[in-house]
């Protein structure tokens, strides 16, 4: 009797089924938030969605493709400037500009990848930082975009978003919610695709993966470019919310990379659930410790270090070790069809 007869292979678990139903309900409830939430809460939620998106994307890079970037602020800032440049000088509607930002980000990511993929491991990380600095210093030289001091989104561009302030707030909110949902769906589908499976194989064993004929360079390149495009997209939404951009804010390593890394590390790197848990934990911490100012960041850094040393798989890893729970049906499981009688 072969293993196939006695065992069944499956992907969807009861927990993941319940999670998908609850997830849909939650999405519906959140989509209706503009009708039952105040403006400040909506803005906070919007910020949470955008950080969740950044965390998901960074996790794809570092947790799956092994590309530890500390320079993703390059794409966040690029997205912001694309939005401002295309609406102000191109006369485009903000929606069109936001849509185009994905394409522009991906196109920019191609030569960047070709260059910095020459660096390995930690040197790759600092290389990405150099790129972000080049972007920051480069945009600071463009006086049409406000140079080093920055520029605001003109009133007529903001007005074109929707009529009335409430409608604009709601539109902006839905965009961020849609962004987070789309990024999560893309991350999930990507990991289930051929490329995603190749990536997981590379992460688990680079040598074995290459002997299976997986083109490691190409797989990583594709991830880098896709994540670059999507991060640019998130960046355009971030600065649509902020309505003002300057090189220092746009390419801030703390805001767009340090926080994101802490979110992913604390939540659990290399899982899809991790960034969600991490985002929740990050905002809970921030809302409770915000008064502490820089002490808050010291605490955050210390927590991230402690997690990395004690529980490298993060909070989600702890939960998983204790319960075996899995919310996203990724990868297959094998279990005996019925208990064997000895």
């Amino acid at each position: 009797m072969s293993v196939v007869d006695t065992h069944r292979v499956f992907r969807v678990t009861t927990a993941s089924r319940i999670a998908s139903v609850l997830g849909l309900l939650l999405l519906l409830a959140l989509a209706a938030a503009p009708w039952w939430m105040g403006r400040a809460d909506l803005r906070l939620l919007g910020e949470i969605y955008l950080y969740l998106s950044l965390a998901m994307l960074w996790n794809l890079l570092a947790g799956y493709a092994g590309l530890v970037s500390v320079g993703q602020q390059a794409y966040v800032g690029l997205g912001g400037y694309v939005l401002f440049a295309l609406t102000i000088f191109g006369g485009l509607h903000p929606f069109t500009a936001i849509g185009l930002s994905v394409v522009i980000g991906a196109i920019v990511a191609i030569p960047v990848a070709a260059l910095i993929f020459r660096l390995r491991g930690a040197y790759f990380a600092i290389g990405t930082w150099v790129i972000a600095e080049v972007f920051r210093l480069g945009f600071a030289q463009v006086s049409a975009l406000g140079g080093g001091s920055g520029i605001s989104l003109p009133v007529d561009v903001v007005r074109s978003l929707a009529d009335g302030r409430d409608a604009r707030e709601a539109t902006s909110y839905w965009l961020t919610l849609g962004c987070a949902a789309a990024v999560m769906a893309i991350a999930y589908l990507f990991l289930r695709s051929r490329n995603g499976l190749a990536l997981t194989a590379i992460r688990d064993n680079e040598l074995a993966a290459s002997s299976l004929g997986i083109d490691i360079w190409r797989s990583k390149f594709v991830v880098y470019v896709v994540v670059g495009g999507l991060t640019t997209f998130v960046g355009s939404l971030i600065f649509l919310q902020k309505l003002r951009i300057s090189p220092d804010a746009a390419f801030s390593v703390n805001d767009w990379t340090a926080y994101v890394i802490f979110i992913v590390v604390i939540g659990g790197i290399g899982s899809l659930e991790g960034p969600i848990i991490g985002t929740v934990a990050f905002f809970l911490l921030r809302e409770t410790l915000a008064d502490l100012g820089s002490i808050y960041l010291i605490v955050l850094g210390a927590i991230a270090i402690a997690v990395m040393l004690v529980a490298p798989k993060g909070l989600w890893g702890l939960v998983q070790d204790l319960t075996g729970l899995r919310l996203f049906p990724l990868g297959y499981r094998v279990e005996p069809k019925q208990s064997r009688k000895e």
Binding site: A122, I261, A302
Partner: peptide, 14 residues
């Protein structure tokens, strides 16, 4: 390579 990178990054912020 992740742990040293992320721990020194945390250290930098601290």
């Amino acid at each position: 390579i992740l742990p040293p990178l992320l721990v020194t990054f945390g250290l930098s912020v601290i």
